[in-house]
Simulated scan of single mutants.
Amino acid sequence: MLGVVSMDTLPDSDVPEIAFAGRSNVGKSSLINALTGRKQLARASTEPGRTRELNFFDMQGRLRIVDLPGYGFAKAPKEVAARWTRLTQNYLRGRVNLKRVFLLIDSRHGIKPSDEEIMKVLDSAAVVYQIVLTKTDKLKPNEAQKRLEETSQKIARRPAAFPVISATSSAKRDGLDELRGEISTLAL
């Protein structure tokens, strides 16, 4: 639909939105592509920091998906990274039609301090967020279950955390139907 680099160019807030957030290279674009069944809807890259704007995707007028820039390591000048971080934070704090943020966590690494910082921002802004563990195909089954349990414990006392954790693999298509079901409850 469009890429936004400033708050004054946001689309109207007349359609529910969901946003995908996470560290650089956690798999946001890959998950969006897998969920929508479109290989090139969101540009996926192996280069951290490739997404540098808020990318809006229209889902038949019933819902908008927003691909947020990754946080953490990025191959970009510090002032550029600071600009897109401010834009993301302003969007998260002030978007009235934002129904949920799906906070992607690489299942191989779990919740990192940078993820906890974003959770604090979302908690203080009262923006509901749901943890989505990505790349679960890279874990052994017992490791995946352990990561789910660890993650559940870490978010148990967070006021804006949605209690359901999704475990996904874009490559193997695991967990996508369940996540689509969660998303469909947020559409018009």
Rank of each mutant, 00 (worst) to 15 (best):
A125F: 10
T168D: 00
A81G: 09
V121A: 01
P77V: 00
V26C: 13
S107L: 04
E149Q: 12
K172Y: 12
G61A: 06
P77C: 06
I32C: 08
F56K: 06
N55H: 11
G49R: 14
A160F: 07
D67R: 09
V96G: 04
D174F: 08
A144W: 01
R93P: 07
R83D: 12
A160N: 08
R50G: 00
R157G: 12
S184C: 06
S170Y: 08
K99A: 15
I111D: 04
K112N: 00
P16R: 03
L35H: 05
V80I: 15
R147Q: 14
G72L: 04
P141F: 05
R147W: 01
E79I: 13
W84C: 01
R62Y: 00
P159Q: 03
K135R: 08
I118F: 14
S6E: 15
L31S: 07
L176D: 02
T185W: 11
D174E: 12
T46F: 07
E178G: 15
L2D: 08
N90A: 14
P77D: 07
L176G: 02
A126S: 14
A144N: 03
T151A: 05
A19P: 02
P113N: 10
L31C: 04
G61M: 01
F102M: 14
Y91D: 02
T85A: 15
L87P: 00
R83L: 12
T36L: 15
H109S: 09
S166L: 03
I18E: 04
R86A: 14
R50M: 02
E182P: 01
R173V: 00
I111N: 01
R157Q: 14
E178D: 13
K172E: 15
I165S: 05
Y129C: 07
I118K: 10
G49M: 11
G94N: 07
L10C: 06
R38E: 11
V26D: 09
K78A: 15
E150I: 01
Q153P: 04
L133I: 10
K135I: 06
D123E: 05
K120D: 15
R158V: 03
I165K: 06
K154I: 02
S114Q: 12
L133D: 00
Q145P: 02
G175E: 11
P159A: 10
D137H: 00
I165F: 00
T185Q: 13
T88D: 03
D137E: 13
S45Q: 04
A144S: 04
R64M: 01
